[in-house]
Design a binder for these strands. Structure first.
Lengths: 111, 111
DNA sequence: TCAATACTTAACCATATGGTTAAATATAAT
DNA sequence: ATTATATTTAACCATATGGTTAAGTATTGA
């Protein structure tokens, strides 16, 4: 359990990986397309995807030469359970939330 | 913002640090008392506390030779905002939550 | 004043992380 | 059959992380 939480929070502790997760909210994507917006080599992205996969935050399914990445909706659950049980998890300022969701939309439009 | 989130999730990605946070839910504690339940040197705990402090999850206030550690209730907020905005943040199985809260109680009793 | 207490800092170590480039693999298209 | 595409694997590198022990610094108590 603790090891799983370590892996989860650790996976979330990198901005590139968080952006990838947000991109995958929109739709499933091929590895190359995931890599496209980032100023980073393909192997680097491939590694990030492996980390997200091991943490259970995404799944990958190869069809032909394309490896499709998709969000695993339950992946974040253990982390959210921990945060809720930690108790300091109030509903945040609605404006913070709106601003952040807005920034996600900008991000996906950027592609 | 991203750097702050990196720091926050990274601080949460270590089981020792998460346990420390849960201990501090109960009450403020001196560094030595924080260290007591762990099979780890004092400098190691001191480092963990610095990391929690830099992430904004706790504050430390020295009075005399005792450095009091206290939870910073708003510290986790940015992480919770991100998770909520990520959207896959359902209220989890109530039994999962109860089991986890129970395990926290056990943990604090252990001291 | 001297010793004990409550730490922090320094120096070190092994392993992990996040990136790179080059080479390998498998599939699809020509 | 050859080439292009999509991706992974390997080898490498610099820096970060999480621990250690030993030494240093205040503060308190005797």
């Amino acid at each position: 359990m603790q090891a799983k939480l370590n892996e989860l929070f650790s996976a979330l502790s990198d901005a590139t990986r968080r952006e990838i997760l947000i991109m995958l909210l929109e739709d499933d994507m091929a590895v190359t397309d995931v890599a496209h917006p980032f100023d980073m080599s393909l192997p680097a992205i491939s590694k990030h995807l492996t980390i997200l996969s091991n943490a259970g935050l995404i799944t990958q399914e190869r069809r032909g030469r394309v490896n499709w990445c998709k969000l695993e909706p339950d992946g974040i659950r253990d982390a959210s359970v921990w945060m809720l049980s930690f108790g300091q998890f109030d509903i945040p300022d609605i404006e913070d939330l709106e601003r952040l969701i807005e920034s996600h939309i900008d991000l996906t439009k950027k592609n």
